[in-house]
Simulated assay, not measured.
Amino acid sequence: MISARPKIADLVFQFYGRSLHPELFEVQRERKVERTAYTATIKITSTGHAICWQQPEGLLLTEVATSALHDLPIKRRLMSQRVRGEHDDRIECAGGLVYQTELSLEHADHSTIRSYQQELQLAGEKHSVLYQFESGGRVGLGAFSYIHFESRARTLRIQALHTFPEDGVILKSQSLFTLPATV
């Protein structure tokens, strides 16, 4: 298991049509969202995040932002994207569920990263999960992860922001899980 935040150059964004063993991740913070049609577990990990979606009928999906060096399974991996610039994807899953995601990298100086972190800490944790990592190097500013979620009866919107002060980069992602109206 990798226990240090990866460099942005090593980061991958993956989507699975299955669950992943919890032992694969060092979880820093976790939140569970329960609706009649689905349950979602939102985790900030030492390397990024993991979003686990589960429906009562058995559909299991997992979104992961982690290091490419992290040894994750290939079986039922539906998407794997190195984090570079901007990227979007759309996957239609079993039962009509649609998964959509958008990623972008924003280069930022340390004062901008610090401002983001301070603003997000003030936002609180009513509909979010956040974690401040300790500084691991010369910058003196620890990485920060913030995940905001909007949960509705048939949709879950996830907005994640991860700072990488050593690299001068902010990773922003937005994911949407949408069930068809007939479910």
Rank of each mutant, 00 (worst) to 15 (best):
A50L: 14
V183I: 11
R84M: 07
T36C: 04
E106A: 14
E119T: 12
H87R: 10
V33C: 07
R18C: 08
T62Y: 07
K32C: 10
E119Q: 01
R152I: 08
C52Y: 13
Q118N: 11
L20D: 00
H148T: 00
A50R: 11
L141R: 09
D109W: 01
H70Q: 14
F177Q: 05
Q100P: 04
R138W: 01
S115R: 12
Q55I: 05
I8K: 00
S46H: 04
D109F: 03
R90A: 05
L59P: 11
T163F: 03
R82T: 02
L122S: 03
C93S: 11
E134D: 12
I113C: 01
E63K: 01
W53M: 04
L78F: 04
A143S: 06
T163M: 05
E166G: 06
K75G: 12
K126H: 12
S111G: 09
R35T: 00
G142S: 03
S145Q: 04
P165M: 00
K126C: 03
Y116S: 06
K75P: 13
T36L: 11
D167E: 06
A68T: 06
T155W: 06
K43I: 08
V169M: 09
S80N: 13
S104N: 04
I147R: 09
L69Y: 07
D88Y: 15
L105R: 08
Y38F: 13
E125G: 13
P165G: 09
L69Q: 12
E23N: 06
V27C: 05
K75I: 00
G168W: 06
Q81D: 02
T66A: 13
Q174G: 05
T101V: 10
V64S: 05
L60N: 02
A94G: 02
K32I: 02
S46F: 03
E92A: 11
K172D: 00
A123K: 15
E23Y: 02
R114D: 15
G140A: 03
L156F: 11
L176N: 09
G96D: 08
Y38P: 11
S67R: 02
V139W: 12
P22V: 10
A9R: 15
E119W: 03
